[in-house]
Amino acid sequence: MLEINNLNVHFGVIHALKGISLTVNDGEIVTLIGANGAGKTTTLRTISGLKKPTSGDIILNGENITGMSAQQRVNKGISHAPEGRRVFPAMTVLENLEMGAYLRKDKPEIARDLKMVYDLFPVLSDRQKQPAGTLSGGEQQMLAIGRALMSRPKILLLDEPSMGLAPLLVQEIFNIIRGVNKAGTTVLLVEQNAMMALQIAHRAYVMETGSIVLHGTGEELLQSDQVKKAYLGG
């Protein structure tokens, strides 16, 4: 599905991604974990086209999309729920979800996906007419995920969906991610909550200061001493 080869990204003199490579296969949940500042967000932003890499390739279903605009990538099936939710605060919940389907023209299908999102997050349905800025953090995260689903993506990029949420909500969000994946969407999940992420992921990559230092199945990394020590608190 998605393949990243030897990707380098700079912010001025800062070398944020140092030649990383990773693969996400069709139907998988792959997680990218690592400490703050490791380069996880930059990786996702480069995949979705918000940040231009200095070198390296991004391949989606065999097609090189490295030079494409963010807009073209949405059309190709990449959807990105960014770090910090980034919902449109002055728009209603419904308008936010409609923005997610911005490039689509198939009205009946959009209506069907809207219903799917409301079924997934009933609280959003109750709050359709409410400005997104007035939602709680958890509800905004649900909206950000719902909005990302409205483009009917092939691959969903999620950046720290559990950030700042109460444990019960975190559990709920992770259940939903698993459900979305079961329903057929491939997921690349960035998390600082390594424990939770590794539990639902098929495979995982560990990032440190711009490089990938470890990868394996979720199960393997949960057992790995290195990961236990650095990310799982012992």
Partner: peptide, 17 residues
């Protein structure tokens, strides 16, 4: 709506396509 979205959050707007 795109105008409103861009004025609220350019990056997020770009992610909508």
């Amino acid at each position: 709506k795109a105008m409103r979205a861009v004025s609220m959050d350019k990056d997020a707007a770009e992610l909508m396509g």
